[in-house]
Design a protein around this nucleic acid. Structure first.
Length: 459
RNA sequence: GGUCCCAUCGUCUAGCGGUCUAGGACACCGCCCUCUCACGGCGAAAACAGGGGUUCGAGUCCCCUUGGGACUACCA
């Protein structure tokens, strides 16, 4: 089995493309086959090499390793030419000298008469040769039907009268998409073509070409589209859609893979899948037939799950770039790991992790919420800070139990609730009312920083 | 317009004729836990688009309607 992913480098790798790549990857790996890449760059006006780099980078980041070297269509023009010539020689295709204007005119006329707009096949039996501005058209059978059993949609049949005499070679000497794809898939030995729903209508045309070449048909499977919240196909206007944009937002590749896999595929009630598990369980039989709305909340929750799963040291590395962006210098030793661990269950993205742990690195804690400061650092609050500072001074290596005891003692001494004791300390230490547990913060920050922050807030 | 595809909670989905008074997950709401925020635990609410068949029996099979979508290029 050989599957392929064939992006055109007209943009970055987006969610839809990533899922197509994932399913092809999974199908191949599940069956011990190959997964290859083809870059469809024949649209030279819109194709950019930096997009190729970025698409390959995104696939790598996701962990979708491909076999061999990517094939570039622009390097194979001669091959397409040979195959087109073959069809012309066999009388299965023909040179067409009709001008674009003429074709447009007949199309418009047919449309006006309420008929199907199509080429009128003027040149079909004229046996013309090459000429400037000429195209090569395929002799589509005038009758009969074309069908295949789609791997995800089931049997599909279409009347060949629905099809025009397709142009296979453009007047600029480049093959058309449908033709190039077939030549590529044949010569690359692709056995299973898994692609987006939008290609269902291309399939009968491509089948015609396979038949013309006397080449066995590959299996086709068409994946439903990924939609935005408004049920329209996912696009830029739905916000972040490129894989790397999600990386920048602090999402983990495991979460994106898991999320994408569950968009249109299922394995009973299981929700969490590692890439290895996906390879083990993946099958086309459980791919759904209808479009799926991409739900970023679900991705977020999956991301939170994988963040919780990640080893704190590794998480520190994932989180660090975002802290670095804020202008901090990297702390020494395992400080960063401790920080990551303390916010691990609180942050749902690497960005949130950085935001939540930022207070550890600040040189000065300041809250801009003045109302809160006024409410918390009352004379009583100040008293708490002073007392806490003294209590902690004698117990720098505090643990949960020990800190609870200190809080309790203070609460009894000052005759206020435990919460009222904790509040000013939390504000002094973190600048916020939401943070990891105080004893944990104290341990990570160390006695000197704790003292100075308590004192600084006391003024 | 024509051709093709699709249709279960708000969303992703399980379901492959009887085990469905329809299960799971996310989100939402409530309760518990608790030094805050979270995590976690427990619970609630929430769907078979509509209409005809077939069958002893239909979410599951067939047809129609409705509603979505794709394609209809010398774009990929």
């Amino acid at each position: 089995m050989i599957t392929r992913f064939a992006p055109s480098p007209t943009g970055k790798l987006h969610l839809g493309g990533a899922r197509t790549a994932l399913f092809n990857f999974l199908l191949a790996r599940h069956n011990g086959g190959q997964f290859v890449l083809r870059i469809e760059d024949t649209d030279t006006a819109r194709s950019k090499s930096e997009n190729v780099t970025s698409i390959l980078g995104a696939l790598q980041w996701l962990g979708l390793e491909w076999d061999g070297q990517p094939v570039f269509q622009t390097a194979r023009t001669e091959l397409y030419q040979q195959y087109a010539d073959k069809l012309v020689d066999q009388g299965l295709a023909y040179w067409c000298h009709c001008s674009q204007e003429k074709i447009d005119a007949t199309r418009a006329q047919l449309l006006a008469e309420g008929q199907k707009p199509r080429y009128d096949r003027t040149c079909r039996e004229l046996n013309l040769g090459p000429a400037p501005g000429a195209t090569i058209r395929f002799k589509t059978p005038l009758e009969g039907s074309i069908g295949w059993t789609d791997l995800v949609k089931g049997p599909i049949v279409i009347d060949s009268q629905e099809l025009d005499d397709l142009v296979i070679f453009k007047s600029d000497g480049q093959p058309t998409y449908n033709f190039a794809v077939v030549v590529d898939d044949m010569t690359m030995g692709i056995t299973d073509i898994i692609r987006g729903d939008d290609h269902v209508n291309n399939t009968p045309r491509q089948i015609l070409f396979y038949q013309a070449f006397g080449h066995p048909l590959p299996a086709f499977g068409h994946l439903p589209m990924i939609l935005g919240a408004d049920k329209a196909p996912l696009s830029k206007r739905h916000g972040a859609t490129s894989v790397m944009a999600f990386k920048a937002l602090g999402y983990l590749p495991e979460a994106i893979i898991n999320c994408l896999a569950r968009l249109g595929w299922s394995h009973g009630d299981q929700e969490i899948f590692s890439l290895d598990e996906l390879i083990k369980y993946f099958d086309l039989a459980h791919v759904g037939k209808s479009g799926a709305v991409f739900n970023q909340d679900k991705l977020l929750s999956l991301n939170a799950h994988y963040i919780k799963q990640t080893d704190p040291a590794a998480l520190a590395e994932i989180m660090w770039p975002y802290l670095e962006d804020k202008g901090y210098t990297r702390p020494a030793g395992d400080m960063l790991t401790k920080m990551a661990k303390s916010v691990q269950i609180r942050g749902k993205t690497a960005v949130e992790l950085a935001d939540l742990s930022e207070f550890y690195l600040k040189t000065r804690i300041r809250s801009t919420d003045y109302a809160l400061v006024r409410k918390t650092l009352t004379s009583q609050g100040m008293e708490v800070l002073k007392e806490a500072s003294e209590a902690l001074l004698h117990q720098p290596d505090i643990d949960h139990e020990g800190f609870e005891a200190i809080l309790k003692k203070l609460s009894e001494k000052l005759e206020i609730s435990i919460g009222a004791v904790a509040r000013p300390i939390r504000l002094a230490l973190t600048g916020s009312m939401a943070s990891p547990p105080l004893f944990e913060i104290i341990k990570i920050l160390g006695p000197e920083t704790v003292q100075s922050r308590l004192l600084a807030a006391g003024h």
